[in-house]
Design a protein around this nucleic acid. Structure first.
Lengths: 231, 231
DNA sequence: ATCGTCAAGTTGACGGTGTCAAGTCAATGC
DNA sequence: GCATTGACTTGACACCGTCAACTTGACGAT
């Protein structure tokens, strides 16, 4: 260990914890994959011996989870920023969804670690993601635009958004539209209109294709003049 | 190695390849996670030395991918079985989606390995999954029920289905409905109705919440009498 | 000023992993 | 009967997460 570390005084152990998190974060950012987050690599980068990490994190997985969770505050921040002052709750919901997708694509490694890996139970990252969407959904229900259990409706919306971004993250070689926003917007429209429509009709009350098409043509005719634009 | 293997004659190398795949498959099934698929474990189970695996698979990842792909035929089989003889293309599509979800939940390890892991490019498993849904979607477009590029529409449907099952696989501790089919059916309804409706109106032509609610109430009123049941 | 205490870090090791280079060995073709 | 060759093994390398035991240095009390 070339550069000798000045030993921390008692009570300053927290400082090293922060340094470790920073090193881990930088490592993830540079290598672009969680496999690069080796205990030895992060220790070397922090200028400390490998087992020292165990004084602050019980295992590699715990460190990985901790460093990935760090960026989650940004999601909450962006959500508030973009949904604030949007009166129409459906529009606020769609903005939430768009922010969600952008966030996932901006932090693919962290998103993957917290949401696309088999955790024993459920990751705190997942719960946070869901809560944001569920809150915006609940607002729509309160406003009478959506109907039913908000949590159930939100699960559907969450599924659609998560599926969209997680596929783009895990299958970058797939033939996606060159503009990711195109797919994202499409999914938001689909999910938004879909839940709005589906929560109005009772289970198993969907007409066969022909009538379905006719009915939807009718309602769509009214919108075709572009009475308004979605935010 | 206790039990001596009778050495294979030239040209019989393929046999070992099959044995390795079987051992790997059994290992995945028993342990329930791909981390259990160790070269040493599969070699031990096959009764062969560790590096022998390299004669048939270039790397651990290749073996993992190969063994997970084995079960993919079942998906195609189930699709054909359930969609055959369904005249209504929208109903056939929803059946496809349901089969897709069941398949994923029935083979969580394989699904995870092939669709929820960062592959350099795009996994063949992903392409197969997408194709099934895309074909059923194209049938709906041909029948005039859905409109637009079938591939684009299918991507949205795929996102919804994949999001649903991949979340349930990766976050088993989340507060899902005790009946997974409930969420799956909900997502199928949402996605089906959503694409049917969204592909009828031009981009950015969605009315604000109040009018949206009114219009959808109107069309839903016609369906409330349960004119038909979706398969 | 010195000593004991105790948190903070280090050393060294263990068992496990994927992977590779070199060697062994039986079956085959000539 | 001999060389060849494909199938497989041996042994090693570098790396990994993790743990037990040890060292070190700053502090409070005397």
């Amino acid at each position: 260990m070339g550069a000798k570390r000045t030993k921390a005084r008692p009570g300053e152990g927290e400082k090293l914890r922060e340094e470790i998190l920073c090193a881990a974060d930088a490592l993830l950012g540079e290598e672009g994959t969680d496999e690069a987050l080796t205990l030895r690599a992060v220790a070397r980068r922090t200028g400390v011996s490998t087992p020292s990490v165990y004084a602050h994190f019980p295992s590699r997985d715990a460190l990985l989870e901790a460093v990935c969770l760090r960026v989650w505050d940004e999601l909450a921040h962006r959500m508030r920023e973009h949904a604030a002052g949007v009166a129409d709750p459906m529009r606020a919901l769609s903005r939430c969804a768009r922010v969600y997708a952008r966030f996932a694509l901006d932090h693919p490694v962290q998103y993957r670690v917290l949401l696309m890996r088999p955790t024993g139970g459920s990751s705190p990252g997942a719960l946070a993601c869901f809560r944001h969407l569920a809150d915006a959904t609940a607002a729509c229900v309160r406003a009478g635009i959506l109907r039913g259990e908000p949590e159930s409706l939100a699960m559907g919306l969450w599924s659609a958004m998560h599926g969209c971004v997680s596929l783009m993250i895990a299958q970058p070689g797939f033939d996606w539209p060159e503009e990711p926003e195109a797919l994202i917007d499409g999914v938001i429209r689909m999910a938004g209109l879909g839940t709005a429509l589906a929560c109005r009709v009772p289970r198993d009350a969907i007409p066969p294709s022909a009538e379905l098409a006719a009915d939807l043509d009718e309602v769509a005719a009214g919108w075709a003049t572009s009475r308004d634009r979605t935010g």
